[in-house]
């Protein structure tokens, strides 16, 4: 009895090593990223309201309210539309973004004060999003093609993968992403390393909710900047997967319409 247990242990050890050799860390990382993408495939579209709370290190806070609409696309990156509900002076301002698997994303902004749509021709996605600790690149659609991958280690059901951004203008050298294999490869934590490879920020996902028995959505994002000691909290409302948004809801015309 004891002997057989021992043998099993030996075999499983060999097996692990063998798998390890047969697949490089890069391949395994990419595989995990793809599995995560696959797990979230088919949600179609979603609408969600969220509250963004900015905190400085003295605990002073400032809030912004937003609504985000997302349209899933498989050929190219997702399309998204963000509408600002507050502060009052930017209410109705809306951004429309087409993420692309390769190359710079397209972005438009509707400004209700002058009732015009402006196109932002910028390769810069690494700056802070409305003064928060989130960069635009942290919030935009996570396309598999935007990173190079390297599997780091497994801790139980948690898989740690290093992701190196392909975009030379990214603010990061790498991110260390923790996937939860047992929960549809949902993200648990992301650590961001800045250009000098020092830990800059940690994003923690919590209050996960399972929609349609398939799609995990975290209702709280907490981003802590370790260098400035500032933090930003995102609190999401209920996701609406039933709106059945289509391409025509993500156009310049639609942008003007949602941005009242």
């Amino acid at each position: 009895m004891r002997k057989s247990k021992f043998l099993i242990a030996i075999f499983s050890a060999f097996f692990t090593v063998a798998v390890g050799f047969s697949q490089s860390a890069e391949e395994r990382g990419l595989q995990i990223a793809k599995a995560a993408e696959k797990a979230d495939e088919g949600f179609g579209s979603s609408i969600v309201e969220l509250k963004m709370t900015l905190k400085n290190k003295n605990g002073q806070t400032s809030e912004r309210f937003l609504t985000t609409q997302t349209l899933e696309l498989t050929e190219d990156g997702d399309k998204s539309l963000i509408v600002f509900e507050s502060p009052k002076d930017v209410k109705g301002t809306a951004t429309l973004t087409f993420t692309h698997k390769v190359g710079a994303d397209d972005q438009w902004l509707y400004l209700p004060s002058i009732k015009r749509v402006k196109r932002i021709s910028s390769n810069n996605k690494s700056g802070p999003f409305v003064g928060s600790e989130f960069a635009y690149e942290d919030l935009s659609s996570q396309e598999v093609e935007k990173y190079a991958y390297k599997f780091l280690k497994a801790e139980g059901e948690l898989l740690l993968v290093e992701q190196d951004p392909v975009d030379p203008k990214s603010g990061y050298t790498r991110r260390v992403v923790t996937y939860n294999k047992d929960k549809g490869y949902r993200l648990e934590k992301v650590e961001f390393y800045d250009r000098k490879n020092a830990l800059l920020k940690t994003l923690t996902y919590s209050d996960y909710k399972l929609y349609k028995n398939k799609f995990w959505r975290a209702l709280t994002f907490n981003m802590v900047n370790h260098q400035s000691n500032k933090e930003t909290l995102l609190n999401f409302g209920e996701y609406n997967f039933g709106a059945e948004l289509a391409e025509e809801d993500f156009t310049e015309v639609a942008l003007k319409r949602v941005g009242r």
Partner: peptide
């Protein structure tokens, strides 16, 4: 306010 929002969105890291 909206110009500022736009400008801030286009600044890099």
């Amino acid at each position: 306010a909206q110009y500022l929002l736009l400008y801030e969105l286009s600044l890099p890291f």
